[in-house]
């Protein structure tokens, strides 16, 4: 039990230190020219209302540009609900 604790702390601290070392390469907070905000996102902001007649860009991207993704997501929660039912629900008359 004691060794497991020490191994756990070692793994957590090593991973945390490596991740914090990695943040030096991450974009600065609130940088408008950071990689996440420069490639495809300006296209969505400038064209979403014109092309889909939907002022809320999040809805437009969610259901139209990335509709296939959202369909997969709906299937995932459907599968989760069905697997909960199959795991827990008892058969009739048992």
């Amino acid at each position: 039990m004691k060794t497991l604790d020490i191994i756990g702390w070692f793994a957590v601290l090593t991973t945390g230190a490596l991740l914090i070392y990695g943040t030096a390469e991450m974009p600065n907070w609130g940088d408008p020219n950071s990689p996440p905000s420069t490639h495809v996102s300006p296209r969505y902001i400038e064209k979403a209302d014109e092309e889909t007649h939907t002022p809320n860009m999040v809805t437009a991207v969610l259901a139209d540009y990335r509709g296939y993704d959202t369909m997969g997501e709906t299937t995932v929660i459907f599968t989760a609900g069905v697997s909960c039912m199959m795991l827990l629900r008892r058969r009739q008359g048992k």
């Binding site: 408008p32 996440p36 905000s37 495809v40 996102s41 300006p42 969505y44 902001i45 400038e46 979403a48 209302d49 860009m57 999040v58 991207v61 969610l62 990335r66 993704d69 959202t70 997501e73 995932v76 929660i77 599968t79 989760a80 609900g81 697997s83 909960c84 795991l87």
Partner: peptide, 29 residues
Amino acid sequence: TLHAIDYINPLPHVLMLTAIVVMVATFGV
């Protein structure tokens, strides 16, 4: 009148909206 500098990036919001639902589903299972 639409410029990318005036609006925050909608893409992470979209991705995380679906991630939250997956979080609830995995928690239930």
